[in-house]
Each structure stands twice: as C-alpha cells, then as structure tokens.
C-alpha cells in the first residue's frame, strides 16, 4: 500500500517537462562519489568535444543506486535523451535490498571504467603472501578479520568468492564492513584487522610507500606497476572487476540505442576522456554491445550465488 502510494506520488510529482538538452545523465548517488564523478566527467567530455550541445547531471542518491534506478526506469521509458550511470555495486544492492527494479529494466549501453580489487596486509604483518593468508583462513576463518566496504558490496563479494575458491565455508568469513574507503584503510594501517580488501587505487599509494603489502589482485592478468600475483595464478579462481557503466532508458528503439552507443563510443575514444581517466586514475575497460551484455549476465549470476552463499540474500 505504502509502496504504491509512494510510487504514485513520485511518478506524479516527477513528471519533469522535457528539456531541450541533448542528454540528461542521472548519477544515482550524492555529489562527489564515484558515480557522480563519472557522470560529471561524461558531461564535461561530451560537451567539450561537441558530441552533445548540452548535458545535465541529476543526482538521485540512495540505497546503492537502487532509488535512482527505480526512478529512472519508471519515468523515462522510451526517452532517448536520458542516461544513467551505474556499476557493479548496483548489482549487489539490487539483490540485497530486494529492489523491484533491476538492470533488466534499463538498456545497458557500455562498461566505461573499472578497477580491480587488491588484497592487502599491513607491512608489519607476519603474512607474507596470499598462500599464507589462505592457510590462516583454512585453519580458523574467524581469526582472519577482513576490513572492506559496505556489507554486500564488491569487497564483501570478493571475500566470499575467495573463501569459496579456497574451500572455506563463505558464511564463516569474519568480514568487518566500513562505510568509506578511508576508514577501512585506517583500520588496516593501524593493524586493527588481519587483512584488507578494496579497490587497488585505495591502496596503491600506501603500498608504494611501504606501509602495506599487496598480496594479490583480482585481475585476469598481472597489472603493470603492481608487484603482486593475481588470485588466479595463486590457485584461486577469482576474477572480479568493480566496473562502472552507462545505461539508457527502457523501451527505446534500436536506432535510438545505436545512436547513443555511437555517441558513447565517440566519447570514449576522445582525447579529453583519456586525459580525464588518467588524472582520475581510472582504468579504461570499455566494453559495449553483446560482449558487455554477456559479461553483465555473468556478473549478475555469480553475484547472486555468492550473496546467497554469504547469507546476505535468502
């Protein structure tokens, strides 16, 4: 009852008059975060390169992006000028929050950027490599405390996958969720926890300074400039990328989808985009079309399994 009331209220209240802008990008998060920065970088580049004459960014924060996603899907059906930024975190949030709207209700266009996860220990730790950590985990999973981002987020999912790959019951992991990267990093640096897991970028500077030791990364192949093996070569079959993507409204025609895809491709290939990614330290993991669709489906399937394994989704 309450649900429909609010949905109705939102739908009625938010029937925005059409803008004469080329694109309206929704960032389903507060200003300043990763999705917001992605949206605003897109805005900058699309305008600077003349791909679009006018781009606006709208922030609709809440619940891992699911509030924004729900609003986007319900109000913009068939509108070709509406885009939404999203990412891997959304996949988990849709499942843990039992969101009625999923990524199937929008039209994913392309994966834009991505970051691999890194598993670290403080420099003073007696754990020297990933095998040492895995052995500890096998011996007593409770004694290995992992600091990372919010429950059910990318970091948590990665720990669940690692435990599973190591043959440890994923429900037995001792995962300590922190709200921001900074807080988790402080706990790791202060040796409050056994190990830490987060995006590589969070740890890179500390590792270079010798305060942290990177045990492994979740990429397919070794990453240039990072002195750590992949989980795969250490015998744990886990590959995970925390990606960000752009999607269009549901119910658009194939021509409209093709036009948007072409604009996005133009943007990704522009020098301005490459420079922006470089200054922000984001890796270009552009993937579009059917390849992206397949990757997305695989991610959703594996996330759903692991969240059930951890016990976050019934």
């Amino acid at each position: 009852m309450k649900h429909t009331l609010f949905a109705g209220m939102m739908a009625a209240a938010l029937a925005l008059p059409a803008h004469a802008t080329d694109y309206m990008i929704m960032a389903p998060a507060s200003p300043g975060g990763g999705w917001d920065q992605t949206a605003r970088t897109m805005q900058e580049v699309l305008q600077a390169d003349g791909i679009s004459s006018s781009v606006q960014v709208q922030n609709v924060p809440g619940a891992g992006g699911t509030v924004g996603l729900a609003q986007f899907a319900s109000q913009n059906a068939g509108k070709a000028d509406q885009l939404i930024v999203g990412g891997f975190v959304m996949v988990g949030a849709i499942l843990t929050n039992a969101s009625p709207v999923s990524l199937a209700d929008v039209t994913p266009i392309a994966r834009l950027t991505g970051e691999y996860e890194a598993i670290v220990v403080p420099a003073s730790s007696d754990i020297k490599d990933i095998n040492g950590l895995v052995e500890k985990l096998k011996a007593d999973p409770g004694a290995v405390s992992w600091a990372g981002g919010s429950a059910g987020g990318t970091d948590h999912i990665a720990v669940g996958l690692i435990a599973k790959a190591a043959g440890v019951d994923p429900t037995k992991i001792n995962y300590i969720a922190y709200s921001g990267g900074g807080e988790a990093l402080a706990a790791i640096l202060g040796s409050q926890v056994t190990a830490g897991i987060s995006g590589l970028g969070e740890f890179k500077a500390q590792a270079d300074a010798g305060a942290l030791r990177i045990l492994a990364v979740t990429s397919d192949e070794r990453i240039a400039g990072v002195d750590a093996p992949t989980l795969k070569e250490s015998g744990l079959d886990v590959v995970l990328q925390n990606w960000r993507m752009v999607a269009a409204a549901p119910g658009i025609t194939d021509e409209q989808k093709a036009a948007i895809s072409a604009d996005v491709e133009k943007m990704v290939n522009s020098d301005a985009w490459k420079t922006a990614l470089e200054t922000k330290g984001w890796a270009n993991t552009y993937l579009a079309g059917d390849a992206f669709k397949a990757q997305l489906d695989a991610d959703i399937a594996s996330t759903s399994t692991v969240l059930k394994d951890i016990g976050l989704v019934k």
Binding site: L16, P17, H19, A20, T21, Q56, V57, Q58, N59
Partner: peptide, 15 residues
Amino acid sequence: LTLPAGPLEHLFLGK
C-alpha cells in the same frame, strides 16, 4: 545546484 525546474525557470534560463 540541481533544483527542480518548472515553466518559470525555463522562461528565465531560456531553455
């Protein structure tokens, strides 16, 4: 700052 726009705002911002 993104604030909800209506007819008056469009008139004045020329959009």
